[in-house]
Design a protein around this nucleic acid. Structure first.
Length: 405
DNA sequence: CCTCCACTGGAAACCTAGGCTC
DNA sequence: GAGCCTAGGTTTCCAGTGGAGG
């Protein structure tokens, strides 16, 4: 890894010594060869998919579990190994991997799939461009391509729940039906990975039954398991004796509170190490973990705020300025802020929507409260420190001006 | 027990920007 | 260039709704 080499050189020059010996093992992209505490899951998935080596279609598979429970990592691991084995046996298996949350829209999902299959290297007339085609046409082209090439396709859709939330299950319907159309040679199997356990309820019954021919739930890691994962990872990433046991335990405990999220735990460790390095101390201690926790929270809030639209920012300001934080008051404040900054206000309906988006992002909390005769409303409270907000709105001097008065 | 407030939140229509195809 | 397509943000419309006060 020449990147790491450079990192090392620069850090040594800057700090005199370095704590991290292999930074890559602390990033989200790093998938360890063997995932601790996931043997059962790995085995079951491998068994289900191994049928492809006998040139038959594996069942569709649905993996459930909270974020950071290792679903994606296990799936990626199994698939990589399967791919390798298939190649050895001279069987061509295509495994498009789409994260439907980053792909964002239904069409982009199709586009990503098409791209992964290499469709755009083929005939121009059958390519799938990043826009311009109808959904139906794009799907047709993909399926025709599979049929023509007689591909064995195992399509992995990560965060499939967010796709269904936003776009419904049409795409899934088409793909689960696809095998009826691809009559000879090729086939397509689906692996869906979902963060939400209730995701299945939103599906059309036909899609549901065919998508979940086989399913599996990934339970959150316990705190003890997180400790083991972290200390394993720390051995890979750090020089000896750099991270104290206490720090690891705290890290595991904090992530344990967040639904046993291993990703979060590793993030914490990485950021804590960065903080310790900057302090030029030789050990990562508990206090660094705590600082890391704060930093991560602040950074995500900051990013969200910074990238939100002018109206969302105005709504945030209106919430800060409102005393009781009920919808009517917030909307009124928002409207007056709009006229001050010479903007057309959006409708109240849209503002309720923005408020619930902010709630989901965790920037505010809101719960519906009934005041009997005085109607039903929300109590909206901001959860982000004003300082963070000020920083994020720094580039917006006009808005910033409204915070203090 | 009934009313009726001040909303909530679903559904559909509308609008705009972007892009393909012929 | 006309005539299609889609995504995504927004508006319009409106049927609910929990519970304090009558």
């Amino acid at each position: 890894m020449s990147d790491d080499l450079l990192d090392n050189i620069f850090e040594k020059a800057a700090a005199g010594k370095t704590l991290v010996k292999n930074r890559r093992t602390l990033t989200i992209d790093y998938v360890p060869e063997k995932l601790p505490f996931r043997d059962e899951e790995t085995k079951t998935i491998a068994q289900a998919l191994s049928i492809v080596l006998r040139k038959a279609r594996p069942s569709n598979l649905l993996l459930f579990g909270k974020p950071g429970t290792g679903k994606t990592a296990v799936a990626k691991n199994v698939i990589e190994r399967l791919h390798k084995k298939a190649r050895e046996l001279g069987i061509e298996v295509i495994v498009p991997f789409v994260n439907t949350k980053t792909a964002n829209t239904a069409y982009k999902v199709l586009y990503e799939i098409a791209k992964d299959m290499g469709i755009n290297k083929g005939e121009k007339k059958l390519q799938v461009h990043f826009t311009g085609l109808s959904m139906g046409e794009a799907t047709d082209r993909i399926l025709d391509f599979i049929q023509k090439k007689k591909f064995y396709v195992i399509l992995v859709m990560d965060e499939i729940d967010s796709l269904v939330d936003k776009n419904g299950d049409d795409i899934l319907y088409n793909f689960t039906r696809a095998n009826e159309r691809i009559s000879e040679g090729g086939f397509i199997s689906l692996i869906g990975i979902s963060n939400s356990l209730t995701f299945k309820d939103k599906l059309d019954p036909r899609v549901r039954s065919s998508l979940s021919e086989e399913e599996m739930v990934f339970n959150p890691y316990t705190i003890e398991q997180l400790q083991k994962i972290l200390s394993d990872r720390a051995k890979l990433a750090f020089n000896d004796e750099v991270v104290s046991d206490a720090a690891i335990n705290l890290c595991a405990a904090m992530a344990g509170k967040e639904n046993g999220d291993a990703r979060r735990a590793i993030d914490l460790l990485r950021v804590a190490a960065e903080i310790a390095e900057r302090e030029r101390v030789s050990k990562v201690e508990e206090k660094h973990i705590r600082l890391a926790q704060e930093k991560i929270e602040k950074d995500t809030n900051y990013e969200v705020l910074k990238n939100s639209t002018a109206h969302t920012k105005l709504v945030i300001l209106a919430i800060i300025k409102s005393k009781n934080g009920n919808t009517g008051e917030v909307y009124e404040t928002y409207s007056s802020l709009c006229s001050l900054s010479e903007q057309e206000p959006l409708t109240q309906r849209r503002i309720t929507q923005i408020i619930s988006e902010l709630d989901q992002l965790g920037l505010i909390t809101s719960n519906v409260v009934s005041q009997g005769r005085y109607g039903r409303s929300q109590r909206i409270k901001i959860t982000v420190p004003t300082l963070t907000i000020k920083e994020a709105l720094k580039d917006d001097p006009i808005l910033l001006h409204y915070i203090d008065n």
